[in-house]
Computed example of a mutant assay.
Amino acid sequence: MIPLSSSVVSGVALSKIDGEVKMLLMKRVKGGFWCHVAGSIEQGETGIDAIVRELKEETQIDVLNLYNAQYLEQFYEASVNVIQLIPVFVVMCPPQQEVVLNEEHTEYKWCSLEEALELAPFPNQHAVFKHVWSYFVEKPVNALYRVDIS
């Protein structure tokens, strides 16, 4: 048997950078690969609490406009024999969003979809980025996806 875990959340930050919508990718210290924001849900937190906290911790971005991406990342984590089910959120940032990384990442880049697909190594990341781009960049954002963070 392979247990399921849903103790992690992830988020894709979007911002207009020099007039073009871009998504934030960061290079992880652990593993050395490019990724979006992700982290564990702590005791007593909801998934929404966790993604708001993780974005602040990893990037110093204050989340004002949060959306449920209507997508679950899923992958098998061989080292612990667990299938991870990860709800994805989208953070709509103001133009020219500043980023201050914590110790978990060495660098960041605001990317077009094509750049993100080149940098990120995992097929599941590619699926997330394509989904987010399709529903949050190429189409008007559906108001039903908005998450109340008050």
Score class of each variant (00 low, 15 high):
Gly32His: 06
Met92Ile: 14
Pro87Leu: 02
Asn102Glu: 05
Leu117Gly: 13
Leu66Asn: 03
His105Leu: 03
Ser79Asp: 05
Tyr108Asn: 08
Glu103Ser: 14
Glu114Arg: 10
Asp49Trp: 12
Gln96His: 14
Val29Asn: 08
Asn124Glu: 09
Ile61Asn: 08
Leu25Val: 09
His105Trp: 12
Val82Cys: 02
Gln70Leu: 11
Ile86Arg: 03
Glu42Lys: 15
Val88Asp: 04
Asp49Leu: 05
Pro95Glu: 00
Val82Ser: 08
Asp18Arg: 10
Val99Gly: 08
Thr59Lys: 01
Asn68His: 03
Val21Leu: 11
Val52Ala: 08
Gly47Cys: 02
Gln96Val: 01
Phe33Asp: 11
Val88Pro: 07
Asp49Ile: 04
Gln60Tyr: 07
His105Met: 04
Glu54Asn: 10
Thr46Val: 03
Cys35Leu: 02
Pro95His: 07
Gln70Glu: 07
Tyr67Val: 01
Ser112Lys: 03
Pro87Phe: 00
Glu54Leu: 12
Lys22Arg: 15
His126Thr: 01
Gln84Arg: 09
Glu107Asp: 14
Asn68Trp: 09
Gly19Cys: 09
Glu20His: 10
Pro95Val: 01
Val21Asn: 01
Tyr108Gly: 09
Ile17Thr: 04
Asn68Lys: 11
Pro94Asp: 05
Ala50Lys: 06
Ala116Ser: 15
Phe122Trp: 14
Asp62Glu: 14
Leu119His: 06
Pro123Glu: 11
Met92Glu: 07
Arg28Lys: 14
Glu103Asp: 15
Leu113Tyr: 08
His36Met: 14
